[in-house]
């Protein structure tokens, strides 16, 4: 794919982070977790922690869906969340950008920090949060409008009106999502005319257009054919350097192929988390082993 435009995107993301820090100085100052994160990073010889969930308990009404889940996610890595259906991995993912707020009767306890800032404290603007933590869904959900407008939707929400600037973002994002060459002549056509795989890459491009720091992907390939899946996986690997990606997947080969670390969920609990290479060859928990070898799930 087009690596030059990708590194371009990465540069922009980097160059933008100082201004973001300037936006919320108070929150940045009080970051004791940051040191912890650095320490952890040193241990694993990895990048600092960008998103950290701590003791997340989540309830749908009275039913507890997540039980004291704590996971750190390192910057510019791909983390996979695996586990059988109903284990809470998607629910957990949706905690990270507070999408669960939209669900009636859903209550979350615990903390999620984004660059040291708790996103569950009062007064956090979910609108700002979701612009920093993008999301791609299980089923492609392009808006019923032109391809161009789909991509420009996020930047427009942030108040960018200049057509030329928007056009640049659209091209950059589509290139970033490896879709530009396929749609560059049809930008004014409805996004609903694209194939499923193209639609999903469009949704990824749409998420990239807001230049998020973190990209959440909720089974992004489950509705796609193998070739489209491969393309999206390739894309994830390319985005890895510039974004922190957290992906929920049912496909364990996929988790093994694309992710740096893997977390295994069972019945609302985090059973085990570690480097994917180790998780898929030598898991420390019996239940993890049973699941990845296909004994249940």
């Amino acid at each position: 794919m087009n690596t030059s435009s990708l590194s371009n995107l990465a540069d922009k993301a980097m160059s933008e982070s100082p201004t973001r820090k300037a936006e919320t100085p108070s929150a940045r100052n009080s970051t004791p977790q940051f040191n912890v994160a650095m320490a952890a990073a040193g241990e694993q010889n990895a990048t600092p922690v960008i998103v950290e969930a701590e003791k997340i308990n989540l309830f749908y009404g009275t039913k507890q869906a997540l039980k004291s889940v704590s996971i750190p996610f390192h910057q510019n890595t791909i983390s996979a969340l695996i586990g059988p259906s109903g284990c809470g991995k998607s629910t957990f993912l949706r905690c990270l950008n507070r999408m669960n707020d939209l669900i009636e009767g859903c209550r979350t306890e615990g903390e999620v920090t984004l660059s040291g800032e708790n996103i569950y404290t009062k007064g956090v603007d979910t609108v700002m949060l979701r612009q920093r933590v993008g999301m791609v869904f299980q089923k492609p959900n392009p808006f019923p409008m032109a391809i161009w407008d789909n991509i420009a939707y996020g930047p427009r929400l942030r108040g960018i009106k200049n057509k030329a600037v928007l056009g640049e973002i659209v091209e950059e994002s589509l290139r970033g999502a490896a879709l530009w060459d396929e749609v560059k002549d049809d930008l004014k056509k409805s996004a609903l005319g694209l194939s499923g795989g193209q639609q999903q890459r469009l949704c990824i491009a749409r998420a990239l257009a807001t230049k998020p720091e973190v990209l959440l992907m909720d089974e992004p390939c489950s509705a796609l054919d193998p070739i489209s899946t491969l393309k999206v996986e390739e894309l994830m690997r390319e985005l890895r350097g510039a974004y922190t990606i957290i992906i929920v997947t049912h496909n364990m080969q996929q988790a093994a192929r694309v992710s740096d670390t893997t977390a295994f969920f069972l019945l609302g609990e985090l059973i085990e988390m570690g480097a994917s290479a180790k998780m898929f060859t030598d898991p420390s928990d019996k239940r993890t082993e049973d699941y990845i070898t296909g004994r249940f799930g």
Binding site: N97, L102, V127, M135, Q138, N141, P142, F143, C203, T210
Partner: peptide, 24 residues
């Protein structure tokens, strides 16, 4: 899914309602 897509991009309730749900 369409509403969630818009919320995930940081749209407000009004923006979701008027710019995504109504056109759809």
């Amino acid at each position: 899914a369409l509403r969630e897509g818009a919320y995930a991009l940081g749209a407000t309730k009004m923006e979701v309602s008027l710019k995504v749900v109504v056109p759809a």
